[in-house]
């Protein structure tokens, strides 16, 4: 891609990302807010394609759309008495929130503009995705390998602690009930 096209792509996607992020707080509908946020993330994912990070960019779009689809369900579900199905404001504590978000935007934006970016030495590697993975994970592989089972254990432990029903509720005090007593029947005849 030529330099001009990349520049145009960057500005279009950048403006789209910021504008749709602002829209999240302007609209009065849960669905519109959620998917405005999704659009913002999609623009960020597509901007990653400009860095030739095709895998990272496309996966970002995939994960974010999936996440927003699920989040819309949770947001409606947890909104209590379901005003979420009706038009509602997307902001709470407007002044403080506005001050904090403007300050955060200015600090991060100023950081990106003012930091002395290094000048490129040499040429990028032919597979930039592999190079990125190597530099992010290479030295920390042992830490990552240790952290991932700990994270899984935390998730499983959290669900076990939070769950109101245990295996004794499902299979009886002696765990001898063949078909578990579940509020919803499963699909494999258990």
């Amino acid at each position: 891609m030529s330099g001009v096209l990349v520049d145009i792509g960057f500005w279009v996607l950048g403006v789209l990302a910021v504008a749709s992020a602002v829209v999240v707080f302007v609209v009065d509908s849960m669905a519109r807010a959620t998917y405005a946020l999704a659009l913002s993330f999609v623009a960020v994912g597509l901007a990653l394609l400009l860095l030739q990070q095709n895998y990272v960019g496309v996966v970002t779009v995939l994960m974010m759309v999936m996440e927003m689809a699920v989040m819309a369900v949770y947001m409606v579900m947890y909104m209590g008495m379901n005003p979420a199905l009706m038009p509602m404001s997307m902001v709470h504590d407007k002044r403080a929130a506005l001050a904090v978000s403007v300050a955060a935007f200015v600090v991060l934006g100023a950081g990106a503009l003012l930091v002395p970016w290094p000048v490129r030495r040499g040429v990028p590697s032919p597979d930039v995705t592999a190079a990125l993975g190597e530099s992010l994970m290479g030295k920390q592989m042992l830490v990552m390998v240790v952290v991932s089972p700990v994270m899984v254990a935390t998730i499983v432990g959290g669900i076990v602690l939070a769950s109101g029903r245990t295996r004794y509720d499902r299979f009886g005090d002696d765990l001898d009930v063949r078909t578990p007593r579940d509020p919803e029947r499963g699909g494999v005849g258990r």
């Binding site: 095709n54 496309v58 759309v65 999936m66 369900v73």
Partner: peptide, 24 residues
């Protein structure tokens, strides 16, 4: 595209959003 398989996966996830929006 060098990530064609992931591209397909992304498009089929897009269907999640589209069908739910159709319903909403």
């Amino acid at each position: 595209l060098d990530v064609g398989i992931v591209w397909f996966n992304t498009m089929d996830v897009l269907v999640w959003a589209l069908v739910w929006l159709l319903g909403w």
